[in-house]
Structures are given as structure tokens and as C-alpha cells.
Simulated assay, not measured.
Amino acid sequence: MRARPPTRQFVVKLHSRCDLACDYCYVYEMADRRWRAQPAVMSESTAHDLVSRVAEHVRAHDLDQVDIVLHGGEPLLAGPARIESLLRAATDRVPARVAFTVQTNGMRLDERFLGLFAEWGVRVGVSLDGTKAGHDRHRTRRDGRGSHDAVTAALGKLTGPDFRHLFAGLLCVVDLAVDPLATYRELLRFDPPVVDFLLPHGSWSAPPPGRHPGDPATPYADWLMPVFDQWYGESPPRTVVRQFAEVITLWLGGTSGVEGLGEQASPPLVVATDGAIELSDIVAAVQPDAVDTGLNVATDPFDAVVLPTPRLASECLACPVVAACGGGHPAHRYRAGAGFENPSVYCPDLFRLTSHVRARLAHDLAALT
């Protein structure tokens, strides 16, 4: 174990339930069942303890800014009063600038919430899986109806003249069954400042769709590379595709700001609705106990958290692209009975994609010199 560096981002699970039933959800559809025993909504008392611990952490490390991400479940289920109470408390009591973001499925994102977020300067990220057909394949209501129409209607409000300054970007999960460039074009329709393409979560023990452990095929790289080429060739760029930008940064010797690419200098901490302090909740999707610190904001400071020492598989340490892929997301390295010291289940895809980015970058740098 190693001492944890100062934490600059806190992911707050304000509500532990959701009003959608997305079939790929890492919270509700994989191995983690802890949400069943957690309070549906974070209590005022726990929120008070959370803010006190953030303020304590800021003072201890003389931080000038921290990020608080309202997450879930679906955080808007907590309601505007509970959300505003937390925003007010953090703004009043944390002796640093607090940058607020909410990550929402968009189903409840109306003028009431947008007005609240405008008042407190909360930036809003929305999950949208591209076209109506692609989105509604997975992101359904509990009765099976699609959610695309409701989400895009909410995006219409968010991207209008009154609230566009709050728009943080779009999050899209890759689906091999849909056209990548059609997906990208649909996301660009909303002029997002940032796009995040996420790989479906899975492991060696429960592989993601289309990935067969040990198969050298690269279906996810094949999906992402045309999008990279389109994005990279745009002048001026129409958005920032975070994963592509981070791979370029890593190839140029920088550090990662994205979980699952390279090593993060200051990984976020997660606070559950019961106040439990946890490591990445994505890792909990494959091994729930791996994120449990045994700590709670009611009794423990954030500095009490220690990180497991990162250990990459020997194959990764000898790999020529490890500087860019970092071994992939820890959850994707998991194998039952063998833990996390394995290559990513996405290893062939990561190798091909990061190599492709490096080749494009090297070609352009050579042209400049």
C-alpha cells in the first residue's frame, strides 16, 4: 500500500437508485450488489459530514480548488432541495473554490434543475449513446421504452442560449452494433465541448460484448479508429474527445486525467449515500470488496485512505504501448482467482488504437520538423 496524494475530485453518490434500466450499467447489472443495502438518498447528516471532510482535506493540503461530482444512480432523483442544500454547504464551508459537476441521464433535466445549476454554477454532463436507434438499444426505461427522445429534449434545453454555458459534455458507451461515424455525428449535433467514449465494462471472467479472451481481433479499436481519424482531421476541432486527447498527451510525455489510461496522479474518491469512502466504483463492478476502504466520512478523514500499489502484468511492463494505455482500466484486468495483475481484456484493442494514434502523431511531428 502507499500513502494517498491529496484528493482533488470527490464523486458524491447523492442517490443510489436510477430511473433507467440500462442493460450495460456497471452499478446495477454486474457483480456489485451493495447498492441494495445503501440508503436511496444521502441524508442531510451525511452530506454535512462529507462537506466537513472536504473542508478538512482542503485545509490540510492548502488546496485552492476541488471538484465535486454529483453522481449516482441518478443524482437528480435526490430532488432540487437536497441538491441545493449540498451546493450551499460546500460553497459556504469549503475554504477553496469548489467546481461542481453533475452527471445525469437527462431524464429529469428540466428548467427547474437548470435554473438551480445556473445559480450555483454547476456544469452538466449528459449520457447519450448517439442515434435514437443506438441509444434506445440499451438506455431504456423500466418498462422497456427508449429514453432517447426525452434525453435529446433535455439536451435541447441545456444547449439553448440560457444554459449552454453549463454544458460539460456527452458520455457515450461504445456499441459495436452501431455505426461509429453516425454515432459521432449525432453527438456533434449538440456541439458538446467534450465527448467521452467509454468501453463497456467487463473482465476476463465476464467479457464485454464482442470480446473473446485471447482472441487477437480488435473490434473496439476498429470502431474507434474511424472516429479518431475524423476527429483528428477536423480543423478547427469541433469538440474534445477526451480519450483521444489523453492518449496524445501520454505519448507526448504528459500524465493522464482519465481513469484507465496511464496512471492518474490524483485519482478521485467516491462517497456513497451512507458516507462510506470508496475507491473507484467501476472496479466494484467486478470485485466489490476491492473498493472498500472501511472508512466513512462520519468518522474518518480522507487522508486515512491508502491506495493499493499498482501492479501491472509482466506482459504489460514489457509492452511498447504501456506508456499510453497504462495497462487499461483496472476493472478490465480482473480475472476470478487471479485478481487484477493481468493484461486488460481489451489488450488487443488498446494496442492497436494507441499504436494508430502514435503513428498519426509521429507522421505529423515529422512533417513539422
Rank of each mutant, 00 (worst) to 15 (best):
R2S: 10
R4A: 14
T7K: 02
V12G: 04
V12A: 05
S16E: 15
R17A: 09
D23H: 07
Y26N: 00
Y28M: 03
E29K: 07
E29G: 04
M30D: 11
R33C: 01
R34H: 10
V54K: 10
A55H: 07
V58C: 03
A60C: 11
H61I: 00
D62W: 14
D64F: 08
V66W: 13
V69R: 00
G73H: 08
E74K: 04
R82I: 00
I83T: 11
L86D: 01
L87H: 08
A90F: 02
D92R: 09
T101L: 12
G106K: 07
M107H: 14
D110L: 09
V122P: 00
D129T: 13
R137T: 12
G144Q: 11
G146A: 10
H148W: 15
A150M: 11
V151M: 06
K157Q: 15
G160Q: 11
D162S: 15
L166C: 08
L166G: 02
L171C: 06
C172E: 12
V174K: 05
V174D: 00
A177K: 07
L181W: 13
R185E: 15
L187W: 08
L188K: 01
L188M: 07
D191C: 11
H201T: 14
G202T: 04
S203K: 04
W204T: 08
W204S: 01
W204Y: 15
S205W: 04
A206S: 14
A206R: 14
P209L: 10
A217H: 08
A217Q: 12
V227Y: 13
D229A: 11
Y232G: 02
G233H: 13
F244S: 01
F244G: 00
F244N: 00
A245G: 02
T255D: 12
E259D: 14
L261Q: 04
G275I: 03
I277L: 09
V291H: 03
A298K: 13
D303I: 01
A304C: 07
V306N: 02
V306C: 11
A313C: 07
C316H: 07
P320I: 07
A324E: 02
C325Y: 02
H329Q: 11
H329T: 03
H332N: 14
R333G: 03
G337R: 07
G339K: 04
F340I: 02
E341W: 01
E341M: 11
P348C: 12
L350F: 12
S355W: 02
A362T: 15
D364I: 10
